[in-house]
């Protein structure tokens, strides 16, 4: 178990200075996510244009993995439509859970999350924001949970 693999500089930086942090007014959709295990809570706001994410913000309280994952996600999904977002999440999920998954170049900074797979208890922290984004895209406004 290597802590440096989990808490890479990119993760620590995005935890300390989360990007796209705050609320989005007006927004087209938002969703709340909750991880009862650690009390992580976050809300994702979206503004859509032509079926794609024009702007995105998130706000909430969480651990470094959850905060950094959400911050990195908001940077990665701008301009993408739902299909592209879900495809990206599929690759992230594989990266978080499969020992042999190799991050491809298109993941960019999101590849920093690969260290999480050594810490199974923390996978939920990294995936909460993606579930929440999925709910925002799908249902407009709803609460999702990782339990």
């Amino acid at each position: 178990m290597d802590l440096k693999e989990l808490y890479r500089d990119v993760i620590l930086d995005h935890n300390k200075r989360p990007r796209n942090f705050g609320t989005l007014v007006p927004s087209d959709a938002h969703a709340e996510g909750h991880n009862p295990l650690c009390g992580d809570q976050l809300t994702v706001w979206l503004r859509m244009k032509d079926g794609a994410i024009e702007d995105i913000r998130f706000e909430g309280k969480g651990c470094a993995i959850s905060t950094a994952s959400a911050s990195l996600m908001t940077e990665a999904v701008k301009g993408k439509d739902r299909t592209a977002v879900m495809a990206l999440y599929g690759r992230i999920h594989a990266l978080l859970t499969q020992q042999d998954a190799v991050p491809d170049a298109s993941l960019g900074k999101l590849a920093a999350l690969s260290g999480v797979r050594e810490f199974p208890a923390r996978v939920k922290c990294a995936s909460l924001c993606w579930h929440t984004l999925g709910a925002a895209l799908e249902r407009g406004a709803a609460t999702v949970t990782t339990e």
């Binding site: 989990l6 650690c38 651990c63 993995i65």
Partner: peptide, 23 residues
């Protein structure tokens, strides 16, 4: 400060120290 209890729990666990984190 600056370190969520859940992160503390993981770091301590890596050092062999078992504590409880959460509510």
């Amino acid at each position: 400060e600056g370190c969520h209890p859940h992160d503390l729990g993981t770091i301590l666990d890596a050092e062999g120290v078992a504590i409880r984190t959460g509510h």
